[in-house]
């Protein structure tokens, strides 16, 4: 109940913000009868109506995981974000091993197998991608060979 109401409210707010954003789109001299604002405005109107419906008629509450699991999901997200930032400067092998090990640990919390999984996936995928499929990946930080 509450989840759907909150989601409905978020949808309404985003729809309003999207509408406001649409009014700010700059137009050029190459105008057509519809213009570049109308379609986004139609979308936001449709989303607004859906938001109201969800606010008024929510579905039964979904099973949200316990706080600890939510924490694990947050950690996974942070790890993936960090992976995105480090992949280029640090090379493929290191960040991939760390990220894969952490994700593995979160599915099955046993340290040694998780570590082995991380290293195995990292090295295995590197060999497959670099030498099998010929993608241009760098194993180590720039300037350290490979």
């Amino acid at each position: 109940m509450a989840s759907d109401r909150i989601f409905g409210a978020v949808v309404i707010l985003v729809a309003l913000a999207f509408f406001a954003g649409a009014t700010q789109i700059r137009t050029s001299f190459l105008a057509d009868p519809v213009g570049s604002k109308t379609f986004p405005m139609l979308i936001s109107a449709a989303a607004f109506i859906c938001g109201v419906v969800m606010l008024m008629r929510p579905d039964p509450e979904p099973d949200w995981p316990a706080l600890r699991t939510l924490g694990a999901l947050a950690i996974a997200t942070v790890v993936l974000v960090a992976y995105a930032y480090t992949l280029k400067p640090l090379g493929f092998v290191g960040p991939t091993a760390v990220a894969a090990a952490i994700v593995s640990y979160q599915i099955r919390p046993r340290a040694l197998p998780a570590l082995a999984t991380g290293v195995g996936i990292s090295v295995g995928l590197f060999v497959l991608f670099r030498f099998g499929l010929g993608l241009s990946l760098f194993a180590l930080p720039r300037g350290m060979g490979l």
Partner: peptide, 29 residues
Amino acid sequence: AILMPGVTMVSFVGIYALTGSYFDLLLVT
């Protein structure tokens, strides 16, 4: 515990190999 980290990494590397942009990896997340 082995399969899913593998799936994650293959997804990320695929996108990275295609676009070469860290920003797209953030978007995937």
